[in-house]
Nucleic acid binder design. Structure first.
Lengths: 168, 168
DNA sequence: CAAATATATTTCAAGCTCAAACCTTTTTTG
DNA sequence: CAAAAAAGGTTTGAGCTTGAAATATATTTG
């Protein structure tokens, strides 16, 4: 396969010990690397969820959020926690409801709102997925020692100016 | 807003100095942090591309890839470089063609294949976007010093076992 | 050279994603 | 209290994404 290389001289892909470029270039470099790594892990997670659980990452994210709030979440709170658009969650929850993994419970005093909650089945399914998920991550990020992982975690922690929780 | 907290006791979100959990937990923690950070930056990039260039991240990615291969790329090579599915690229390129930013050039000896290339206009548009893109990244990741950025880059570099290039 | 196989690309169905428009149902306020 | 504003959700339209199936063209092989 005659694949001709990039036209730009690759002036900065010269290994860990190379001289630093401008701050802006170094940050760009970092961004491209972290984007690539994240996408790779995400792609593998999607693949695993699909083949082993016939599910998707968005579904997993929704269930993970619900599993942390056993009292249920309103749709708006759910989209707030996940930081995705309001209308987005509607469709995902619809499908989870179809599969009996979550329910919408009417809120007593408010005829607009409903609380979304995991069903018993939903809890069981998610528990299995969460277990597998942690193992997948452990494998995919196995090249990081716990200490390195902590270091990187802390670096990223620095850049959250406003936000709050999120996690499994 | 009566937002009740997570039900699980947050046993490990106790700041940078906290004791390390199991390796698997540390890696999971790192994954969740890097996923959140990546999504935040991505969301802002999407927003900026939309409002300032009436474009999208996938379009930008395609144009960035093409800008590095001035001789053009075959569709399959393009999806290979971007690591997205084959059929995916078709639609994105279609729209870029509609807007006159790229062209499909027939490959002489092969009536199946075509080379995709940036047009003159495409090159100009991309140049402006790339400039803005680097500035956005510089701002979004401004909390990292160049040295830290390099350190994180190198950490992620470690975990690419097989792959090759990618970048702006 | 014809059948089989491989390559290049598009089409398709299902699902995710967003912003904007649109209902309803509260809540606020004049 | 009635009009206006706010809050909770869904719908809609456009685009992105994937894996699988479908097309068409090239190459290999018996």
């Amino acid at each position: 396969m005659t694949m001709n290389g990039p036209k730009t001289e690759k002036a900065q892909s010269d290994g860990p010990a190379a001289a630093l470029g401008t701050p802006s270039k170094e940050r760009l470099r970092m961004w491209l690397r972290m984007l690539k790594s994240t996408r790779r892990v995400e792609a593998q997670l999607r693949e695993n969820l699909r083949t082993e659980f016939n599910s998707t990452l968005p579904r997993f994210d929704v269930m993970a959020a619900l599993s942390r709030y056993s009292d249920g979440l309103k749709m708006s709170a759910l989209s707030g926690v996940l930081k995705v658009s309001n209308g987005n969650v509607t469709g995902i929850v619809d499908r989870l409801v179809d599969e009996g993994l979550v329910v919408r419970v009417q809120v007593p005093g408010d005829r607009r709102a409903s609380l979304v909650r995991l069903t018993r089945k939903g809890e069981e399914v998610f528990a299995a997925q969460a277990l597998a998920h942690e193992a997948w991550i452990d494998e995919l990020l196995g090249s990081f020692t716990p200490e390195e992982a902590r270091m990187v975690s802390d670096h990223f922690d620095m850049m959250r100016d406003d936000d709050e929780e999120e996690g499994q």
